[in-house]
Nucleic acid binder design. Structure first.
Lengths: 152, 152
DNA sequence: TCGCAATTGCTATCAGATCGCAATTGTGCG
DNA sequence: CGCACAATTGCGATCTGATAGCAATTGCGA
């Protein structure tokens, strides 16, 4: 559970994936800047949920001049393109992760721990929201709060 | 949709309800101050989700000196006592409402509109979270985000 | 009625996030 | 291959929502 654990190596598949994303960016009139590339690297390089601040720190390890606001702007852009999802956990900053890593979030309102859960948990909720209200739920972008097993 | 609409009259039942809450507060060593009473009045007086700021404005209509921080402190206290729930909609400030008015929230991430939905929509999710993870979900304290019917 | 802890008003401060602007830099087009 | 120009960046100022510290006030149990 230590914050900086699992700094999983960038695998060669990631590089292609990053370039794929960048070509999507280009298709939308965007550019492949070093900061953007580095940010994507950080996003691909870790399974954890990262705040903008944490991602900035990771980017800065390679390019110390990249500014926090740049990271925010890029995250916003990448979210607009559907590449990343942001999730507001109950307290603290928003966290960001690749949109492809599909999962919901259970956040304990006592101890703050977060459990990732598969999408199918939301199947029923998604279905009834659609049929009853015509509302299409995106289960990745919010946190479900309550009490975790050890905090009952 | 105008912000100040529906300023539903304080009904005589509300007064008793407010005093009931205050006696609970007293049982926990708290006091029945004017600010507290006014805040409860505001909470009872409206079905809408209100931010701390909005509630403060309402309280100030009767007692102009009540400070924003006082309202925050009281909301925190009342939430601790289980009288109110707070919900973080996707953006903007947290909103507060009486815990008794049980419902979940669907928030459109495009137009920002909010739909209140009955608890039973969450039945399945609540059940599988409990059986699979021992996690007890409180459906009132978070917002489910997605696209509303008119924003597909 | 009295004493004391709970509460308040106020200001300062916090964290997270956004904005404006001049300088820089990708990149599509010729 | 090189240019023009829009996209992007660094940086600081600024914004909003929320909290903390502290002295003065005030409910309320005994």
């Amino acid at each position: 559970m230590s914050p900086g654990s699992q700094p999983r190596q960038i695998e060669h598949g990631d590089h292609d994936a990053i370039e794929d994303v960048l070509s999507i960016v280009r298709q939308h009139g965007g550019r492949a800047t070093p900061a953007r590339r580095l940010l994507l690297q950080a996003l691909f390089g870790s399974r954890e949920h990262r705040s903008a601040e944490e991602l900035t720190a990771e980017v800065r390890a390679h390019a110390p001049d990249v500014h926090l606001s740049t990271v925010y702007r890029n995250l916003e852009e990448l979210e607009r393109l559907g590449v990343v999802d942001s999730t507001r956990l109950r307290d603290g900053p928003a966290t960001y992760h690749l949109a492809s890593t599909a999962h919901g979030h259970l956040v304990c309102e006592k101890c703050g721990s977060m459990t990732e859960v598969p999408d199918d948990m939301f199947r029923d909720l998604v279905r009834s929201a659609r049929t009853r209200y015509g509302f299409i739920i995106n289960p990745h972008r919010f946190a479900v709060t309550g009490r975790c097993a050890s905090c009952q």
